[in-house]
Nucleic acid binder design. Structure first.
Length: 705
DNA sequence: GGCATGTGTATTTTT
DNA sequence: TACACATGCC
């Protein structure tokens, strides 16, 4: 057989060459999990399993792409490209486009992202008039969190409230009314939220004949990061493997960090129960980190309440302990991090092989400013995404109206951008246009649109009255929608389109975006104070759209696989230069770098003070810290600022003293080299002055630039 | 009545 | 920073 098998260790080989039946791979950090999974895909293909009958479920699209490219390298064939790879959600979407009809789901459904879902929730919240002056009612995001946890954990509302949202218990009745309205709207308007994708997939499996067809599509299912799947995902897998038991899951209970998404390690622990005759393979040799880093990481996990069963070991000895850097405050932390990064760069380690990790998206804000100041290019993963920016959502809302004229929240969003139109007027217009088709959805036939007039058509033929202030912009809205959709136009003398073609002639996607951008120019001018920058972002969106022919595909891809760093599109796309990685710890899952910098290792940051209320919360934060540490190959820095200014504590406008993260116990610290960035005041002063640009040079800019 | 605007406040992690 | 709510303006 192939020589590439010889390069694997015995445990990896066992996993890769496992035949039929359930397989559980318990893979500690850095034990070659990705490689093993990729090799197993390659092995299956070499054994004659058609690539398109293999399903590889991963946590991100990136992970799937990487594994398949590796599998391709191993087999040396193109086959691996045909493997079904992607996230649970993306796969659900793909399957539901094909088989959804069996569940009365129209093929043109649109997918709501988190904030869309929250907006829809808010719509109903407001309609119910539930907000009272005397008592606070859960906000839209809270409502969505409750809903999502309830659904994903498959846990009754009362239990969900009691265990995770006790302060909302009194509102249980109203909350359940809101949830009713929420699901009804989604059904009427052909909308699926993230959770629905999983629920519908699960329902698909359970459906009489289609279930078998869907499951029968795949000879083998492989699942990565199984410790971070939730009960619904487990249910999907069981549904997919009722007959054929070829399933392989990979995970590490010590790295489960998604319980806020209702992920549960019960899935991985109970896997052998759900799938009898499971073969379990444990991977314990770490190839990633030098020994001192692994030792320190293991020491962190030794304090965990639950003991994990693996003993990770490394064959990479080194004298270099990980480094704990105590800083005076955050500015100094930024300074030291930058210096270390540049030192390593000088020493031959490109920026791409270095990463700065942190607990929450905004923890890197100061550092980002400092990096920009020093001309260190970076790319940030996690935190706020490109598609979550308000103006991008404005653009997407227009496209979604064109795609699905019954999408109520998109109408709301677009209408309220116009001067003089607030919630009341928007709602009146929406009613006038007949956006809410009562009961139509339950009939669910493909001819339903021909029965009722589309809201877009009505907008053209029977325009609602709008307040004077809104007239001009509303007219603009009508013409741009008319132009993009090709539906009649604007009361203009243009002759009515012939009925010969059923579908009106639409403009190409990129042209649509261009026209809409043009329309938004004056709108943004009024609504946003930095309109120019936002409009430029829309041009970036046009670039992305250029790769798409189908508008629906474009919209769905953006919601299910959003470009994950803001700067993916900023700057020159042709200059593939070296850049530093900034990432939340969550987004760093599965990645590795030569040098890793963990910043804000203070109690309250790691663990987040949002999580310290419960023991299970703290335990998960510990695993999070462990995940961060085990990303490092050769060098690990942990930074801890002693003081925080006006940030954490509301009262007291001065500063607060922080504590080193509780996960760095005495024992753990002993495994670190400890450095102070503030050893003596003189040195510190010198450094600060040295960091400032020469005043003469600064003045010189006045005439040299 | 309904919209624009101001003020206080709470801010994790992601498909 | 964005959201929820209160007040002031057309």
């Amino acid at each position: 057989m192939s020589s590439w098998l010889d390069e694997l260790n015995p445990a990896q080989q066992e996993a890769v060459t496992h035949g039929d039946g359930p397989l559980l791979i318990v893979a500690g950090a850095g034990t070659g999990k990705t490689r093993t999974l990729a090799c197993r895909v390659a092995y299956l293909i070499q054994q004659g399993v058609p690539a398109d009958r293999i399903l590889l479920l991963t946590f991100t699209r990136r992970a799937a792409a990487e594994m398949l490219s590796r599998a391709g390298q191993v087999t040396g064939k193109e086959d691996a490209r045909h493997v079904w790879g992607g996230t649970f959600h993306a796969t659900a979407n793909r399957l539901l486009r094909i088989y959804g009809q069996a569940l009365n789901l129209p093929g043109d459904f649109t997918v709501l992202d988190q904030s869309d879902s929250a907006d829809l929730m808010n719509l109903i919240r407001n309609e119910l008039g539930v907000a009272k002056k005397d008592r606070r009612f859960p906000r839209k995001v809270t409502l969505l969190k409750i809903y999502s946890r309830m659904v994903n954990a498959q846990e009754p509302l009362a239990d969900t409230l009691e265990t995770h949202f006790p302060w909302c218990q009194d509102d249980a009745e109203k909350i359940s009314t809101i949830f009713d309205g929420y699901s009804q709207r989604k059904r009427e308007q052909h909308l699926l939220d993230y959770d629905d994708l999983l629920l519908f997939w699960s329902a698909l499996c359970a459906a009489p004949r289609v279930g078998e067809a869907v499951a029968g599509r795949f000879d083998h299912i492989l699942v990565d990061e199984y410790q971070d799947t939730n009960p619904v995902q487990a249910e999907v897998l069981r549904g997919m493997r009722e007959k054929c038991k070829n399933i392989c899951v990979v995970g590490d209970d010590a790295q489960s960090i998604y319980s806020f998404r209702a992920a549960t390690i019960r899935n991985i622990l109970d896997f052998p129960k759900h799938f009898p005759d499971t073969r379990t393979v444990t991977l314990e040799q770490n190839y990633r980190s030098i020994r001192p880093i692994l030792t320190a990481s293991n020491a962190v996990m030794d304090q965990a309440r639950e003991r994990y069963t693996k003993n990770l070991w490394s064959e990479r000895p080194s004298d270099q302990k990980p480094v704990l850097v105590t800083c005076l405050d955050e500015p100094q932390q930024c300074d030291v991090v930058c210096r270390h990064i540049l030192d390593h760069l000088e020493g031959g380690i490109p920026l791409m092989h270095q990463a700065v990790l942190f607990r929450a998206g905004h923890h890197s804000a100061q550092l980002e400013v400092e990096l920009a100041r020093r001309n260190i290019p970076f790319r940030k993963y996690g935190g706020l995404k490109f598609v979550e920016a308000a103006h991008i959502k404005d653009m997407l809302a227009m496209l979604r109206i064109l795609e699905n004229p019954y999408d109520e929240i998109s109408w709301f969003r677009v209408l309220q951008l116009l001067e003089g139109i607030g919630p009341r007027t928007a709602s009146r217009i929406i009613e006038h246009l007949g956006v809410r088709r009562a009961q139509a959805a339950s009939a669910g036939g493909p001819h339903e649109d021909s029965v009722a007039t589309s809201p877009l058509t009505r907008l053209m033929t029977d325009a609602p009255t709008v307040p004077p202030a809104a007239r001009e912009h509303f007219g603009g809205l009508r013409s741009v929608l008319a132009e993009c959709s090709g539906i009649g136009g604007n009361g203009s003398p243009r002759q009515p389109r012939s009925r010969k073609t059923k579908r009106a002639k639409e403009l190409p996607l990129v042209t649509q975006i261009e026209r809409i951008r043009h329309f938004y120019e004056s709108v943004f001018e009024r609504v946003y104070d930095n309109a120019a920058i936002r409009l430029r972002d829309i041009e970036q969106l046009e670039q992305i759209a250029a790769g798409y022919r189908s508008r629906n595909r474009f919209l769905t891809d953006l919601t299910l696989d959003p470009p994950d760093s803001t700067s993916d599109f900023a700057g020159a796309p042709f200059l593939e230069e070296d850049f530093l990685i900034l990432s939340t710890i969550h987004s760093a899952k599965g990645c590795e770098w030569t040098v890793v910098h963990i910043i804000h290792a203070a109690d309250g940051m790691i663990p987040s003070d949002m999580a310290v209320g419960e023991e299970v919360g703290v335990e998960e934060e510990r695993r999070l810290f462990y995940v961060a540490m085990t990303r490092a190959k050769d060098m690990l820095y942990v930074y801890f600022p002693l003081r925080y200014y006006h940030r954490r504590y509301r009262r007291g406008d001065g500063h607060g003293y922080a504590q080193l993260t509780r996960f760095m116990s005495q024992k753990v610290r002993a495994l670190f080299e400890t450095r102070s960035a503030h050893r003596d005041d003189d040195a510190e002063w010198d450094e600060r002055f040295a960091a400032d640009p020469d005043p003469y040079a600064r003045i010189g800019r006045l005439w040299r630039e």
